[in-house]
């Protein structure tokens, strides 16, 4: 148990959900830690009960075990979990206006479209966004199903041919972040990585650096 914080210190990484870089990822991370703690406590409870079962035979009130522990207790735990899930879920949904960028996936690369100084700019494998404000990614696919995921920003969303999905992301600090395709998409799935560069709002939109103008 003492080793846990030490291990967690090594949990930082460019793709780690445990080092969130924005409010959405932060919310989910808190939810994760709370659920992990609860799960650990429940596991411990069950194991203690199992161990105590090895004692001498006892009189067992059946409904207390099946209904009390089985139904009532589990429903209380699940209701609390569901409430937390809905609360966080509501917070991370795309509510209100946001800057829109596009992510178009194909085997095995990404094309991003984002606002430039004079109209939309397209770039291969690099998405530019402003830091400190919500951004909606409109996700589409050319051929097969892919999935857009920047772990430090928050959840993932599939890119499905014939559909357009919307994912809200937000990053607090300017910097370069890593993203990847999370849905298995064939031979070069593992190499389908991309970068997201978050800019200081003062420098937004970013100057064009040799990208094709749309």
């Amino acid at each position: 148990m003492l080793a846990v914080p030490l291990i967690l210190a090594g949990c930082q990484g460019p793709l780690s959900t445990l080092s969130p870089a924005g409010p959405i990822a932060q919310d989910i991370a808190w939810l994760l830690w709370a659920m992990l703690a609860g799960a650990a406590a429940l596991t411990l409870l069950v194991l203690v009960l199992v161990a105590a079962g090895f004692g001498p035979p006892r009189d067992v009130p059946e409904t207390r075990w099946t209904f009390g522990l089985g139904v009532a207790f589990s429903l209380v735990v699940l209701t609390a979990t569901l409430a937390a899930a809905l609360w966080v879920g509501e917070r991370i949904l795309p509510h209100g206006p946001a800057l829109e960028v596009r992510a178009h996936a194909r085997q095995w690369s990404w094309t991003f479209t984002y606002p430039g100084p004079d109209g939309p700019v397209q770039a291969e494998g690099i998405l530019h966004i402003p830091a400190g404000q919500p951004v909606d990614v409109l996700i589409t696919a050319e051929d097969v199903i892919h999935s857009f995921w920047v772990p430090q920003f928050g959840g993932k969303m599939d890119a499905i041919p014939g559909r357009q999905n919307r994912l809200r992301i937000e990053v607090a600090q300017p910097g370069t972040y890593e993203g990847l395709c999370a849905e298995f998409c064939g031979l070069e799935h593992a190499t389908m990585r991309f970068q997201v560069i978050a800019h200081d709002p003062a420098d937004w939109p970013p100057p064009r650096v040799g990208e094709a103008r749309l």
């Binding site: 989910i28 994760l32 659920m35 429940l42 991370i92 999935s147 928050g154 993932k156 999370a182």
Partner: peptide
């Protein structure tokens, strides 16, 4: 089973799915 309940939580599922 408990990680299953965690995965039923949509926000967390969005992070953990396909990992």
């Amino acid at each position: 089973g408990l990680t299953g309940v965690m995965l039923a939580v949509v926000p967390f599922n969005w992070q953990a799915h396909d990992t």
